[in-house]
Each structure stands twice: as C-alpha cells, then as structure tokens.
C-alpha cells in the first residue's frame, strides 16, 4: 500500500518534471529563432520534409473529407428542401473545424512522428552530444529550424486542406447531385465571415502547429536513447499531440465562436 502511494507520488513528480523540461526546452527553442534569420536554408530544408512531403496526404484527405461532407450534407439538407445551403455547411465545417483539426492530426501522424524519430535517433547515435562537443548548440542547430518549419507549414497545410475540401464538396454537390452552382458559392459567401471564420481558423492552425511540433521535438529530444526508447517516444508524440489538438480545439472554439 505504502509502495503504491510512493509510486503515485513519484509519477506525479515525474509528470511535473517533464512538463518543466518541456517548457524550458520551448523557451530555449524560441531563443534560437533570431539566430535562424541568418540561416534560412536550414529552415527551408525542414519545410521540405515537414510541409512539402505532407502535401499529398493533406490534398487527398482534404478532397475526400470535402466530398463526404458534400454527400452527407446533401442527404440531410434535401429533407428540409435546403440543399442550397450545402455550400455554407461544407465551407463552415471545413474552415472552422475540420480544416485545422484534421490537418493537425494528419500532420502529427505524418510529420510529428518523423521529427521525433529523427531527433531521437540523433540522440541515440550520439550525434547531438557530438555537436555539443564541437560547441554547437544542438537545440538551436537541430530543434529550432524544425520547430519553425512546423510553425510555418501548419497554417498553409490547413488552408490547402480547407480549399481542396470546398472544391471536393463542390464537385459532389454541384457536379454529381445537381445543387445550383450559383447558390453554392453565393450562400457560402453570405455566411462565411472573413474575420470570424477564416482568420480564426488560421489562428487555430497556428496554435496547433506550435503545439504539435513542440511535442514532437520535445519527445525526440527527451527520448531514452535506445531503439525501444525512440519507438516509445514516437508513439507518445502521436498520442499526445492528437489529444492536445482535440482538447485545445474545444478551448479555442469556446473562446472564438
């Protein structure tokens, strides 16, 4: 019994210690950002692996999410004779929720796990210690460009997701099911507000970008330097960042709308 309580207390302290380490690391990463302005090629290299290579999965899933929304929305709305509002439904659900959230989840699975595995392996093979020996700060050299790349890529990916989804909804609704083309766009333009909906969606995806890359980079840097440790860290990245995205989405939605 006493052991159990001891265990509980220890895991509690462990949790707060990790949280503290994560925040110190975050401050350290942010401190490296000014230095990155003169080493933009490093960031560009990372945008390629974090953003450009995630593009395909974002495009395909955006298209299909939009098409499903078009199909489901049509079937529901046609009962009320309101199929003209299909554009509003597709656009609002994409711009406000699905665009930022689903692309952040995909981003965590596609790019976040890769970041963790890469950094964790660098640690396991002592590349990070080697850098320190050469008086190069591995946080500024390795972590900051990856963090910046995630921060830049995430809103762009979310915007691409939403835009492709709207086109997918248009393809199904207008192309296949015969919703009026003019009604699809004009009702959408009447109801979607630039500031309330689109800007808030971008802000959401910026927040998700920060959180997902932060978790990924931290888990990699904090991984136990063995093959098992790296694999556990990769799993933790996907699980924690998905949970963080969904939880934060609720809070952000409550604040914004």
């Amino acid at each position: 019994m006493l052991d159990f309580i001891q265990q509980l207390g220890r895991s509690g302290f462990d949790f707060f210690q990790r949280l503290g380490r994560a925040n110190i690391l975050f401050a350290h990463i942010l401190g490296g950002i000014p230095g990155m302005l003169v080493r933009i090629p490093l960031v560009i290299q990372q945008i390629l692996s974090v953003g450009v290579l995630s593009l395909l999965i974002i495009l395909v899933s955006g298209l299909f999410v939009g098409m499903v929304l078009g199909l489901q929305g049509y079937n529901t709305l046609v009962d009320f004779g309101a199929e003209e509002s299909l554009g509003v439904m597709v656009a609002l659900s994409l711009v406000r929720e699905l665009g930022p959230v689903v692309s952040a989840l995909l981003f965590a699975g596609r790019a976040g796990s890769a970041l963790t595995a890469e950094i964790g392996l660098m640690k396991a093979t002592e590349q990070l210690s080697a850098m320190e020996m050469m008086a190069i700060d591995p946080i500024r050299r390795v972590l900051t460009p990856r963090f910046l790349a995630g921060f830049i890529s995430m809103p762009l990916l979310a915007a691409i997701f939403s835009a492709v989804g709207v086109l997918g909804g248009h393809f199904v609704g207008v192309g296949l099911l015969g919703v009026d083309e003019g009604a699809y766009w004009s009702q959408m333009q009447d109801s979607v507000d630039l500031y309330d909906d689109i800007y808030n969606g971008v802000i959401k995806s910026l927040v998700f970008g920060v959180v997902v890359t932060w978790i990924a980079v931290f888990e990699g840097y904090d991984a136990v330097p063995t093959s098992e440790g790296v694999s556990r860290a990769t799993t933790r990245t996907v699980v924690h960042s998905s949970l963080a995205v969904l939880g934060l989405d609720f809070i952000l939605t409550a604040i914004m709308f």
């Binding site: 945008i47 450009v52 711009v95 762009l156 915007a159 835009a163 492709v164 979607v192 630039l194 909906d197």
Partner: peptide, 29 residues
C-alpha cells in the same frame, strides 16, 4: 529543395487567398 518549398508556400498562400476571396464575404467589405 528551394523550388519545391517555394511552390509549397505559394500553394498555401493561394489556398488562403481563395478562402478569403471565393469562400468568405470579403467582397462585401
């Protein structure tokens, strides 16, 4: 690399632009 990243950023900005112009009520403002 740089060309691909440039294309990616252009595509992202284009998507944002499309959301602003075609989806939202910017032309009403």
């Amino acid at each position: 690399t740089e060309i691909l990243v440039g294309l990616f950023i252009a595509a992202g900005l284009l998507a944002l632009f499309m959301l602003a112009m075609k989806v939202s009520n910017l032309n009403v403002y």
